[in-house]
Structures are given as structure tokens and as C-alpha cells.
Amino acid sequence: MARKPASPKAEPAAAKPAAPKPDPRRAVVDALFRLAANRSWDEIELPEIAREAGLSLAEMRGLFPSKLAILGGLGRIADDAVLAGNSDDLMEESYMERVFDLVMRRLDALAPYKAGLRAVMPALRRDPMALAALGRNAVNSWRYMLASAGIPTEDSLGGVRVRGAVLLMSRVAETWLEDDEPELSRTMAKLDRELKSAGRIMARVEDVHRLTAPLRGLARALCGGRRESRRERLRNEDGDGYAAAI
């Protein structure tokens, strides 16, 4: 009796790639801003945020030490979004054009959180400690923002540029929070005015910095001479024990 040919074996179904796990840090930030859109900032408690994010309180504690830190996490989300973009096509443009682009890209990244920010900001303005903490975060953010667009941040005027960008962003954001037009025409007009004002101020700062360069060099020389004289006096008074004392 002839044997029937064996039926071909069915190929195992290809395993579906696992869906990427949601970023728990972003989940916490999103949860806070969903709550903040409908609740007073002072009423939102940490356990509520954890439940909204689908995490235990212990898991959330491993991500953020405080509610204010969660708020700062939004800055990191905006940083990542801007830094992931490409500013190479702007490198031939003026600093003003580059900052305009950075601000608008940052506002685009913050747009999903606008309702929550609008509700939160009045409470934060009444809290000097919160404003100081957010200000430090903003300085760190804008150091990277400017650097990504090829704007110097580590030279002698780098700190002025960074803090100027923080102040500019703060002023523009106030208008943006109240600007519900799809084209953001009010926001862009405000940004244009602030950039022109900042450009005039920065030009004066650079002029003063350039004109006072000889005086700064003289001051460094004089201070260096005073330090040297003091070291010499200490050597004369204390002998070889001076180095050991340091």
C-alpha cells in the first residue's frame, strides 16, 4: 500500500514584536498635567498622580522626589524634543533667527501641556522657592538649547546669553499661554519684539565687554600681583611650612 506523502509542516507564526513600554517618567508628567488642567495645584497629592500614571507610589518616588520635580520633568521633555531636531540649516542665519526657531520648537513641544500650564502658573508665581527651582532648570535647558544652534554658551558672555534666553522665553510664554489662535500670531509678534529688544541690549553688552577688555586684563594683573606678594610674605614668615599648611 503506497504511503501518502507527508503534509508540509506549518511554519510557526512569526512572533509579533513587543510593543514598546511607555516611558514611566513621561507617564507621570502627563498624569500631573491631566490633573492640573482640572484641579488646583495645591490640591493635587502625590498618591493621586501615581494612580493617574498607573504606578505605585514607590515606583514614582524612584522617578521623581517631589511634585515640583515632576513639573521640572516637563522641561526635560521639551529639551529632548528640541535637541532631537536639526538646526544645521540655521547655522548661516543670525543668532536672532536661531533663537526664534528654538523658542517656537520649544513651544510646539509644550503645546500638549498648555491647559495644565495655564492652570498651574498662577500658583507657581506665588511660590518664590518654586520659581527659583524652575529658573535653575531653565538655565540648564537653555544652555543646551543655544549650544544646539551653534550659539556660544561657554565664553565670557555665555552666561549673559543663556540668562537672556531664559528671560525672553519667560516673557514670550506668558503671551503664548493666552494665545489660542492656531497660527500663534500674537506669540510670534511678541517673540519678534523681544528678540529685537534683546538684540539691542546684547549689542551694548558686547560693546562694553570689548571696551573694558584692557581694564579687565589690568585688574587680573594687579590681583595676581597682590596674591604673589602675599605668598611671598607668608613664605618669609613661615618658611617651608607654608606649602604644608595649604
Rank of each mutant, 00 (worst) to 15 (best):
M1I: 10
L102F: 03
S141V: 10
R235Y: 14
P122D: 13
E59M: 12
M202N: 02
L107Q: 09
A147C: 04
L195Y: 10
A111C: 00
S56M: 09
A189I: 00
D42A: 13
A111V: 02
P22M: 06
W41S: 09
R233Y: 14
A14S: 07
A130W: 02
G135R: 04
A19M: 09
E43H: 05
R226W: 12
L211F: 11
L32Q: 04
M129Q: 13
A37L: 01
S141T: 13
A243Y: 13
R231H: 11
R210E: 04
A133T: 15
A18L: 08
W176L: 12
V160C: 06
I246V: 06
M96N: 06
N236E: 11
D207T: 12
E43P: 02
K114P: 07
P5C: 09
L168S: 02
E59C: 04
G150F: 01
A132G: 07
P5F: 07
P214Y: 05
V162F: 00
L117M: 12
G241Y: 15
P122I: 09
E178W: 09
D155C: 08
L131I: 15
G164N: 08
P182H: 04
K67L: 06
D155G: 08
A13Y: 00
D238S: 10
G239H: 09
V29A: 03
L46V: 15
L55I: 01
G158I: 02
L55K: 02
R106F: 15
G150T: 06
R34H: 07
R231N: 14
M1E: 06
L83Q: 02
L195N: 02
Y242E: 15
S94K: 09
A36W: 02
D238C: 11
G72Y: 00
E154K: 09
V82N: 04
A173W: 01
C223V: 14
A2D: 11
A133H: 05
P17N: 07
P122V: 10
D207F: 14
V120A: 14
R161G: 06
R161E: 01
A189K: 15
A138F: 08
E206S: 12
E48R: 15
R76Q: 14
A19Q: 11
A10D: 12
L146R: 00
G164D: 02
R61H: 15
A58C: 05
A78Y: 03
L55H: 01
C223R: 15
G85A: 14
A132R: 11
E43D: 14
E48I: 10
E237G: 01
E11G: 10
P17G: 04
K196W: 01
G75A: 14
V160N: 05
V139C: 10
P20V: 05
D30I: 00
K190G: 00
V120R: 00
W142S: 03
L222M: 12
L57R: 04
R136K: 12
R186W: 03
A138G: 15
A243C: 02
E93S: 11
D23M: 07
A245K: 11
E181H: 12
F33G: 02
A119N: 13
D101S: 13
I77E: 11
H209Q: 13
Y144C: 04
S148V: 13
L177H: 04
